[in-house]
Amino acid sequence: MPMPGLRIIRELTRVGRVYWTSRDGSAGENALGRLFVHGEDGLESAMLWLTETGLLMEYASWTKVFERVSDRCAGAGLDVFATSKMLRHSLQQLDLARVRAERDNLRTQAQLPSAM
């Protein structure tokens, strides 16, 4: 399937800057949308959340996805609902807990005498 504007990631920096190359040889940085990486089976999307066609899911689509999931839960008799914001904050809390545990581990190691 031809994909006009396809961009293949060459480098992703620690500060989130993306350097890419297109199939025609042009290069650039900070491209959003159609970013790909070379995988074991050829080109693969670099995006985590994709549509059924394999392209990046647009931001506006997320509200509807969470509405549908919440409706399905209600239809199954579950009194739960979710929003993208809830998911984002949950993931941030998990990441914060991991960072704190790692920091505490490093502090503990720094206080122990090193083995000779």
Rank of each mutant, 00 (worst) to 15 (best):
L56F: 06
M3I: 09
S26H: 08
R100P: 13
E102C: 01
M1V: 15
D24H: 08
S70A: 03
N30W: 07
F81S: 09
M47Q: 07
R10P: 10
E58T: 11
F81P: 03
R68K: 12
A115P: 15
V37I: 05
A115R: 13
A82C: 05
M86T: 14
G77R: 01
E29A: 14
G33I: 15
A46H: 06
L48M: 01
L35I: 05
A31C: 13
A27P: 06
M3F: 07
Q109T: 00
L48Q: 04
R7K: 14
Y59I: 00
L35H: 01
E40K: 10
L32V: 06
Q93A: 07
L55A: 07
G28R: 05
I9H: 01
L106M: 03
G28A: 06
M47D: 06
M1C: 11
R88G: 14
G33W: 12
T108I: 05
V99A: 06
N30L: 07
C73S: 07
E67Q: 10
K85M: 12
R107K: 12
L55N: 10
G25M: 09
A60Y: 02
Y19L: 04
H38Y: 02
D24P: 08
L56E: 06
I9V: 00
A31Y: 13
F81Q: 08
Q111Y: 13
W62C: 01
V69F: 15
P4Q: 00
